[in-house]
Design a protein around this nucleic acid. Structure first.
Length: 317
DNA sequence: GTGATTTGACCTCT
DNA sequence: AGAGGTCAAATCAC
């Protein structure tokens, strides 16, 4: 059978994807090696975490690459295009030999078209105050949620357009007497910073941190140290947003100083803020498969937090 | 003028 | 049908 590829138009995204996967494979082998030496793992848990994080980040990068480009190459992506209600013509335009081609929506009346992130990685954390996770977010919506007193705020990475970063997050103030802020992160940041050298979280990783994380896929508890530290703060929440979240501006002094610490794609670019600024209160949940789009799941999780959040530990059953 | 936020509309999913 | 997630025009802020 003939190939779809046209001569001279070898999809660079395919090369990129292969590179990512190859690198991931090498790291997986390295990880396997390390895990075969328990004594080494014990004294170098940061490295193990770091490698795991890198591997996960590469998977996501690969998925991002594949989802961002040609569907001829990856027929499954045609489904994505269909779900976006995008005409095949438009999609072809965007994928035709265009390394930086962007998906262009031709029709104006396609509002609300989106793909629920059923299989993307989702993380959730609860904090007593809004914190800066080091990324630049743009608010794109807010919504009243059933059984929630406060509206949920939706943010996407500012670099979505320019770099195709698909990371989004949702922030919702809980109904608790002492309100907490539940932040759900969807996807990984692919907007790597230019001076980023390696993946990792080593600087911010504290092996003594014994917070608990729930893996929704396996319904097992994981020690937080197995996953690493998390995002550190968010910026760019307007005063209106703060008020809508019930915060004063003092609490939320927005900062343009980015201190990125994404356990899956980013290294801290600059010395991180002391962990105490966030770890006093926050809990985090990691899921490889959990989809926040499910109202039922989300509500159950809300209840879960309300029932088991003890401050220093978050117990999920 | 440019970029961010607000907010109603629209779409998907359950 | 209702809930949740996203879009994009209008508006705001710098």
């Amino acid at each position: 059978m003939e190939s779809y590829y046209q001569p001279g138009c070898l999809p660079s995204n395919r090369i990129k994807a292969i590179q990512e996967l190859t690198e991931g494979q090498q790291l997986a082998n390295k990880l396997r090696e390390m895990l075969g030496q328990p004594e080494k793992v014990e004294c170098d848990c940061k490295s193990v975490d770091s490698i795991a994080v890198q591997i996960l980040g590469m998977f996501d990068n690969t998925l991002s690459i594949l989802n961002s480009y040609s569907f001829n190459e990856y027929p499954d992506i045609l489904t994505e295009a269909t779900r976006y209600n995008t005409s095949s013509l438009d999609y072809q335009k965007s994928q035709n030999c265009g390394e930086n081609a962007k998906f262009v929506r031709s029709e104006k009346n396609k509002r609300g078209c989106y793909k629920r992130r059923g299989n993307s990685s989702t993380f959730m954390k609860i904090t007593s105050s809004l914190i800066d996770d080091g990324y630049v977010w743009r608010k794109y919506g807010q919504k009243a949620i059933l059984n929630a007193k406060n509206q949920r705020n939706y943010f996407r990475c500012t670099h979505k357009d320019e770099k195709g970063c698909r990371a989004t997050k949702q922030v919702q103030k809980t109904n608790d007497e002492i309100p907490k802020y539940k932040t759900t992160y969807n996807g990984y940041h692919t907007c790597k910073k230019s001076h980023e050298v390696v993946y990792g979280i080593s600087d911010s990783l504290d092996c003594s941190d014994n917070s608990l994380i729930l893996d929704f896929k396996t319904n097992t508890l994981i020690e937080k140290k197995q996953v690493g530290s998390f995002f550190h703060s968010s910026k760019q929440i307007s005063k209106e947003n703060f008020s809508s979240l019930g915060l004063s501006q003092e609490q939320c002094s927005s900062s343009d100083n980015y201190t990125a610490s994404d356990p899956f794609t980013q290294l801290p670019d600059v010395p991180l803020e002391p962990m105490s600024t966030i770890s006093d209160y926050e809990d985090m949940i990691f899921s490889g498969v959990f989809s926040s789009s499910s109202g039922t799941q989300g509500y159950e999780i809300d209840n879960m937090f309300e029932s088991y959040d003890t401050g220093d530990f978050l117990l999920q059953l």
